[in-house]
Design a protein around this nucleic acid. Structure first.
Lengths: 203, 203
DNA sequence: CCAAGAAGTGAATCGGGATTCACAAAAAAA
DNA sequence: TTTTTTTGTGAATCCCGATTCACTTCTTGG
């Protein structure tokens, strides 16, 4: 019998895989999904188009992973905030602020991840991501209501609405070409909207 | 010289155009944009694929028109509510309710119009539509603040957030396959969220 | 009815990017 | 080193639906 991947080989492969993901992410960040053909990704990752298929079964699969891991990262950040200290209102505010700020930082990337159309599969992943974001807010809502910071209300709907609200408010300034001033005001406006919406008392 | 379109001919042409639009709309309603290839539209409209191109310069153009006219219709309805009687809060509620109910009526159509990815051009039309919906809510917000029904707040952001909120809350139950019970609760939840968000006093 | 122009047909073409594949290079086993 | 297996290459192929176009059919004006 024959061939067992050496450790070094193993590493190189893993490395290539990462390089592909990174290249794909970068291309999306730079010009949206359109910009990111397999050929472009391959070139940018320093390998041939065919090679990509040793690492990912299809373009969709690749981009689903790109999207999913970006979302994972985002969720982790939010989760950390949720589990942090402070009253629920403050944490909700921090979540929205944090998300919005990062989105405004990398416009194209955020646009692609929030809104840009892509393959069926990628879209499903995005919907899933939205649902996961919703879960985060759901947990905040539950806690907020429990602690009487917020009035009783429909949790699921509220969570979805929050995600939709800041997402929509972000997409317009984010969408390619849009002006990008008044960032602070934008973020503050979104936060204020969300806090009022859940009935936080500060307002 | 020769040939001048008779009135009857003129009519038949206009009729065909309408038939195409209707067929396209129906196909979208039935299975989303995917379902609606030129071939399918042609077949469903009872003519050949080539003929479509006598009426529309491209597939995109056709679907942009389908989308736009649907949005026009929707906007007209909302506008009527806005200009109707009652306090601003009531009208805002009516707008959201009305939109949501119609969206839940024709799930696929609404999904396609709200969220399903499509060609660049169609997407731009959709973004435009969202902005127009935003305008409607903007006018309500302005009036509401003027009349002291709502506290001072950022108009543009608020409008965008409202659109995003109900849109998101609708898309999930709307997205192909989702269950569809508790419609009334859903609508009521969305309305409540939006009213709180703008600071309406009822709550 | 005929000629000229317009509308309709649908099979062939086109486009453009994903995917494959015959082959080459590199790595492990012998 | 030779053999075997894996990995990498990139041009050719495939896919698939929009779009075109040579041709037919219908309308209009004479």
């Amino acid at each position: 019998m024959s061939y067992k991947r050496s450790f070094l080989m193993e590493e190189r492969l893993a490395d290539n895989r990462q390089r592909i993901l990174k290249a794909a992410r970068a291309l999306v960040a730079e010009g949206g999904f359109n910009h990111a053909s397999i050929a472009a990704v391959a070139a940018s990752a320093g390998m041939s188009a065919g090679a990509i298929y040793r690492y990912f079964p299809s373009k969709s699969a690749l981009f689903v992973e790109v999207l999913t891991s970006a979302i994972d990262h985002e969720i982790a950040i939010l989760q950390a905030i949720v589990q942090g200290e402070g009253d629920v209102t403050a944490r909700l505010r921090a979540c929205v602020e944090s998300f919005a700020n990062r989105a405004l930082e990398g416009p194209y990337l955020a646009y692609a991840f929030i809104a840009e159309p892509a393959e069926q599969e990628v879209d499903e992943a995005r919907l899933l991501g939205r649902i996961r974001f919703g879960e985060v807010f759901k947990s905040l809502l539950i806690e907020g209501i429990e602690k009487r910071e917020f009035p009783a209300q429909s949790i699921d709907i509220g969570a979805a609405c929050i995600v939709g609200a800041f997402t929509e408010a972000l997409v317009r300034p984010i969408a390619p070409r849009a002006k990008r001033d008044g960032r602070a005001e934008l973020v503050e406006g979104i936060v204020a909207f969300c806090l009022r919406a859940v009935g936080a008392k500060i307002f």
